[in-house]
Simulated assay, not measured.
Amino acid sequence: MNSISKNERKNNERTMCSLKEIEKRKIVEHNDLITSVAKMDKVPLKIFELAVSCIDTDNPPKNNTIYLSKAELFAFFKVDDSNKHHRFKEAIAKMQEQAFFEIREEKDKGFKFRRILPIPEVAWTDYDDKVMIRFDQAIMPYLIDLKQSFTQYALSDLVELNSKYSIILYKWLSMNYNQYEHYNFKGGRRAEQVEAYRNPSITVKELRTITDTVNEHKHFPHFENRVLKRGIEEINAHTSFNVTYEKVKKGRSIDSIVFHITKKPVARNDFYKLEEQDPIYLQDKANKEQAEELLAGKALKSKYTKLLLDNMLLSPYEMTDTSLMAGLQAHVYPLYDELKELRGLNGVKDHLSYVRAKQEAYSKRNITKYLKKAIEQYLPTVKRQDIENE
């Protein structure tokens, strides 16, 4: 009995999702889920997004189950009043009674529609800080089988979004802007096609569908004020995007909306510990940041970065992460150099093709560790083969 309890405790510790590093957490979803209809309110939608950010696609959660801390869950929603537990129970009840995704998948002659209840089970106790969340099996392919057509965005961008519409718009805009960054760096699209991703257009009919407002705010000025203006204001105020839009008429009616997306410069972090004001600490920190920037700059110019992009093992979004790129340059690319010496550049290409084909979904949370482990396991085999050939 005690051994079972220990095993369960260890499993819970492994799958417990911490919000302490919220700035580093990412959400990855299939584009079919991004363009689906979320039949739920803001709070259930944010609970779902928070739970998705806990999934490690390299090691999918056992029984589709993750664990959250109550304290950190309330912190994510900025809830600190005495009624927070009651409000949490209400949100969970509402999510399980009403919330579902209506997913549209393109088929030969049109669309195939699926209705999926994303989180059928949430469990907690009144004496423990842990909240168990279990995903439905039907939703998992949209969260872990991400070979192509997926979108990645920062969990921190969702924290301050207080409207269901702003969350949905932000995800749709991220889907388009990610493609702009991808093709702008990699090529493979005409200039006007690339620009179309940064300035995406959507019909009002389709926008009403994905925001679940087909039967709401039927008068366009009401729709614009409640959905468009309020959503874009929140996105501009609280996310990494600056967005404007223009209305396109067809006859006397507004037929479609064209969005214009730009990325904000990386903001300076003003929150630091008092001891970090020490001149020696600041100098060490500056040296470290300078070294990271130099390594990241080299990585951006490296032929290996392009190979990772070609094999969808790296996204343009991840290329904006200085620490990640510096890690690749410092810990992974030297090993690729070793392989190149042994097998040539084509040998590196073959290795990355194999890595992508072998692993259906890799970890979006620590790609450096994942790629380093893959090449470290492969290099001894190559060296052993060369010795045997000699």
Results as ranks from 00 to 15, higher is better:
Glu8Lys: 07
Arg9Asn: 11
Lys10Thr: 05
Arg14Ala: 03
Cys17Ser: 13
Lys20Pro: 01
Glu21Lys: 15
Ile22Arg: 11
Arg25Phe: 10
Ile27Asn: 01
Glu29Asn: 08
Thr35Gln: 10
Asp41Ala: 14
Ser53Glu: 05
Cys54Arg: 03
Pro60Asp: 09
Lys70Ser: 02
Phe76Ser: 02
Lys78Leu: 08
Lys84Gly: 00
Lys89Val: 08
Glu90Val: 08
Glu97Trp: 01
Ile103Thr: 03
Asp108Thr: 15
Asp108Phe: 08
Leu117Phe: 10
Leu117Ser: 04
Ala123Gly: 04
Thr125Cys: 07
Asp126Trp: 10
Asp126Leu: 02
Lys147Glu: 12
Val159Gln: 11
Tyr165His: 10
Ile168Met: 08
Tyr170Arg: 05
Lys171His: 05
Met175Ala: 13
Gln179Asp: 12
Tyr180Gly: 03
Gly187Arg: 06
Gly187Met: 05
Ala191Met: 09
Pro200Gln: 03
Ile202Lys: 11
His217Met: 01
Asn225Tyr: 10
Val227Ala: 09
Leu228Ile: 06
Gly231Trp: 01
Val248Ile: 14
Lys250Cys: 10
Ile254Lys: 01
Ile257Arg: 04
Lys264Asp: 01
Leu274His: 12
Ile280Trp: 11
Glu292Lys: 13
Glu293Gly: 10
Asp310Thr: 02
Leu328Ser: 01
His331Thr: 10
Tyr333Pro: 02
Pro334Tyr: 07
Leu335Cys: 00
Leu339Phe: 04
Leu339Asp: 07
Lys340Met: 02
Lys369Asp: 05
Lys369Trp: 12
Lys373Ser: 13
Lys373Thr: 13
Leu379Met: 07
Pro380Trp: 05
Gln385Arg: 15
Ile387Ser: 02
Glu388Ala: 11
